[in-house]
Amino acid sequence: KTYTFRVRIVDEETGEEKEIEVTAKSEEEAKKAAEELKKKYPNLKVELE
């Protein structure tokens, strides 16, 4: 079973919002993916929905 999570990304500089879908095998995995995004884009606000 896989879970699909919507991750909302807000670029703090431009105020631009993007939504991406993360497919993960567990909620834990999705959280890790969101953390990776935060590391990659430090000025983005990442929200897991």
Rank of each mutant, 00 (worst) to 15 (best):
K45W: 07
T23H: 13
P42R: 04
D11E: 02
K18W: 15
R6I: 15
E29V: 03
T14M: 02
R8H: 06
D11H: 03
R8L: 08
V10A: 02
L48W: 15
E21V: 14
T2L: 14
K18F: 15
E36W: 10
I9Q: 00
K45L: 12
E28I: 09
K1P: 14
A33I: 15
A33C: 15
R8E: 00
K39Q: 09
V10W: 13
I9V: 08
T2P: 06
I20E: 02
E13C: 14
T23C: 13
K31N: 09
F5T: 02
E35T: 07
K18V: 13
E36M: 10
K31A: 10
I20A: 01
Y3H: 12
T2V: 12
T4F: 09
K38M: 14
R8I: 12
D11S: 03
K1G: 08
E29R: 02
T2M: 14
V46L: 09
A24W: 04
V22L: 13
E29Y: 03
S26D: 08
N43E: 05
E49N: 09
E49Q: 13
E36N: 08
I9C: 08
K1H: 09
S26K: 00
A30Y: 07
E12L: 13
K40Q: 11
E27Y: 15
L37G: 01
E21Q: 11
E12C: 15
K38Q: 13
K45M: 07
E12W: 10
E21D: 05
V22I: 15
F5P: 00
A33V: 14
V10Q: 05
I9D: 00
D11K: 01
E12P: 15
T14F: 01
K45S: 06
K25W: 12
D11I: 05
A34K: 05
V22F: 14
K40W: 08
K39C: 06
K25Q: 12
P42E: 03
G15N: 03
K32V: 10
E17V: 15
E47A: 08
K18S: 11
S26F: 02
K1Y: 05
K25F: 14
A34V: 15
V7I: 15
K1L: 08
V46P: 03
T14L: 03
E17L: 10
Y41D: 02
A34L: 15
S26N: 10
Y3F: 10
E12T: 11
E47C: 10
I20D: 00
Y41C: 04
T23R: 09
T23K: 10
T4W: 11
L44N: 05
R8W: 14
E19M: 15
E35A: 09
E27I: 14
P42D: 04
V46N: 03
A30W: 09
L37H: 02
E12M: 13
R8C: 10
K1A: 10
A34E: 07
K39W: 06
K1E: 12
F5G: 01
T23F: 14
V46C: 11
V10H: 06
T2W: 14
K39A: 09
E35N: 10
E35C: 08
E12H: 11
K31V: 10
D11M: 03
L44R: 07
K32P: 00
I20V: 08
Y41S: 02
E17S: 13
K31F: 12
Y41Q: 02
L37F: 08
E28S: 10
N43L: 07
I9Y: 12
A34G: 04
V7R: 00
G15I: 00
K40I: 11
E28F: 08
R8Y: 11
L37R: 01
S26M: 01
S26G: 04
Y3W: 09
F5N: 00
V46D: 03
K32C: 12
E13L: 14
K38C: 12
T4E: 04
P42M: 04
V10T: 13
I9E: 00
E35Y: 08
K31Y: 13
A33T: 08
A30H: 01
R6D: 01
D11N: 12
E36D: 11
K18P: 00
E49R: 12
G15F: 02
Y41P: 02
V7C: 06
V10D: 00
K25M: 12
T23A: 07
I9T: 03
F5A: 03
R8K: 11
A30C: 09
K18C: 15
L48G: 05
E19W: 15
K1S: 06
E19I: 15
K18D: 05
V22N: 00
S26P: 00
E21C: 14
E28P: 05
E36R: 09
G15T: 01
V10L: 10
K39P: 02
E29S: 04
E27T: 06
E36A: 10
G15V: 00
V7T: 01
V46M: 09
E35W: 08
A33R: 10
R6K: 14
Y3D: 05
E19L: 15
Y41E: 02
K1Q: 08
L44I: 08
E47K: 08
E28A: 11
V46R: 03
K38A: 11
E35G: 06
R6F: 10
Y3N: 06
E29A: 08
E17C: 15
E21H: 09
A30Q: 01
P42Q: 04
L37I: 13
E28H: 09
T23W: 12
Y3I: 10
F5S: 01
G15P: 00
K31R: 12
E49I: 15
D11C: 12
N43K: 09
R8G: 02
A24S: 05
G15E: 01
K39S: 06
E28V: 07
K39I: 11
A24N: 02
E36P: 01
A33F: 15
E12Q: 09
E19G: 03
R6G: 02
V7W: 03
T23I: 13
K18N: 07
Y41W: 09
N43Q: 07
P42L: 04
V7D: 00
L48Y: 13
K40C: 11
N43V: 04
P42K: 05
T14Q: 01
E35Q: 10
T4D: 04
G15H: 03
E12D: 09
K39V: 08
E27D: 03
F5K: 01
V22K: 00
S26Q: 00
K32E: 11
E28Y: 08
T14R: 03
E28C: 11
R6H: 09
L37T: 01
K45N: 06
E49T: 12
G15R: 02
K45P: 03
A30K: 01
A33E: 05
S26R: 01
L48C: 13
E17G: 04
S26C: 07
T23Q: 12
K38N: 05
K38I: 12
E29C: 11
K39D: 06
L48V: 11
A24L: 03
E21P: 03
K25S: 14
G15W: 02
A30R: 02
K1C: 15
E35V: 07
E12G: 06
L37K: 01
E17A: 10
A30G: 04
E47H: 13
E47T: 14
K25T: 13
P42N: 04
N43C: 07
E49P: 08
A24R: 03
